[in-house]
């Protein structure tokens, strides 16, 4: 490794400094090395495992399945396009014959593709997470500010925090079906069930971290606030929230991670549309391709989870006043 670097340095084709080479090595070389090793082990290991659905898929088969899924999406797009074209043509003909004809526009209803499921899951997780944050941040601030509120709410937090999403799900399902009755619902019930389950499970880290952040505001800054006689709105805006932001984001990142994990589990269990359902359907399907397709789903779930976390980090570095804070 060092020998290679030294050689590169001596040759120095692009005129980079040793530091730049080193950062290239740590930024590209080591991650690539890790990935290559993983693929190698996967490839070798997969061939040793024989399941009831055939050999466990290696990287090559999974890539194949990915291409299949992309192809399915392309075909589905074509079908949808053709459907709307036919419909438009039919309606135009109808109107030409009789201008007063009653025209009906139908939605295309195909089987949701893999990518439709990805979008569904993303929308659900973001909604659930936003709702959780909208509850957890103000409540966390309140708990952090008042010892009494903390005393009142802390036992509830401690009891509900460890509850698994699988336990919430039946309750949420029943409550949503009982309460959310509407002939023309704005949201589908399955969406609400998934979203509320996500909210219930991902609330806690943000709530707890925000309250800790708020209750640890430096005594001196509180005194500054008192000497200035800041009213409570200004106090919260200029002192409390900025102080608590680093902790708040720690909580938000944990919450988002939990939200994503919980969502997949909830979708699998409740058969609600989304990536979880895709995995479950493939599992039930049991074709020779299923394992490969599940592997694709697993990788996509991982990559999305990673990207969600990155976007939180980005938001954090954007919002956080402490630009020196090391965020990782």
């Amino acid at each position: 490794m060092t020998a290679v670097l030294l050689k590169l340095k001596r040759a120095n084709p692009v005129g980079w400094s040793a530091d730049q080479w080193r950062s290239l090595a740590s930024g590209v070389f080591f991650p690539a090395l890790g990935l290559a090793l993983f693929l190698l082990v996967w490839h070798a290991g997969a061939q040793q495992i024989n399941t009831s659905l055939g050999t466990f898929p290696g990287p090559v088969q999974v890539l194949e399945q990915w291409n299949n899924l992309v192809e399915e999406q392309r075909q589905e797009n074509e079908r949808r396009h053709a459907f709307y074209e036919r419909q438009e043509q039919r309606n135009a003909e109808l109107l030409a014959r009789n201008p007063d004809a009653e025209i009906r526009w139908r939605e295309y209803r195909g089987r949701p593709t893999f990518f439709d499921q990805v979008v569904t899951s993303l929308v659900t997780v973001v909604s659930g997470f936003v709702l959780a944050s909208a509850i957890a941040i103000p409540l966390g601030i309140l708990i952090g500010l008042s010892q009494q509120v903390y005393r009142a709410i802390n036992p509830l937090i401690q009891v509900f925090k460890p509850v698994s999403p699988l336990a919430w799900l039946p309750l949420v399902t029943l409550v949503v079906s009982a309460v959310y009755v509407s002939s023309d619902p704005m949201f589908s019930r399955s969406f609400l069930v998934s979203m509320i389950t996500v909210t219930l499970c991902s609330l806690w880290p943000t709530l707890i971290n925000t309250s800790v952040g708020v209750s640890n505001i430096s005594k001196d800054l509180q005194n500054v606030s008192k000497v200035l006689r800041l009213n409570w709105v200004t106090h919260i805006r200029t002192i409390v929230i900025p102080s608590a932001i680093p902790m708040m984001f720690t909580g938000l990142r944990l919450s988002l991670g939990i939200a994503w994990m919980v969502l997949i589990a909830a979708e699998m269990l409740a058969q609600n549309p989304g990536l979880g359902k895709f995995v479950w359907d493939e599992f039930q399907n049991g074709s020779s391709d299923s394992l490969g397709r599940i592997c694709v789903a697993v990788l996509v779930i991982g990559v999305i989870g990673f990207l969600l976390d990155r976007s939180m980090l980005l938001l954090q570095s954007w919002v956080n006043w402490d630009k020196n804070a090391i965020v990782r």
Binding site: D220, L221, N223, V224, V227, P242, W321, D322
Partner: peptide, 14 residues
Amino acid sequence: RAVVFQNHSLLPWL
């Protein structure tokens, strides 16, 4: 009765 605190007590985000 303004106070100058020992460790400045400036708001670090301002």
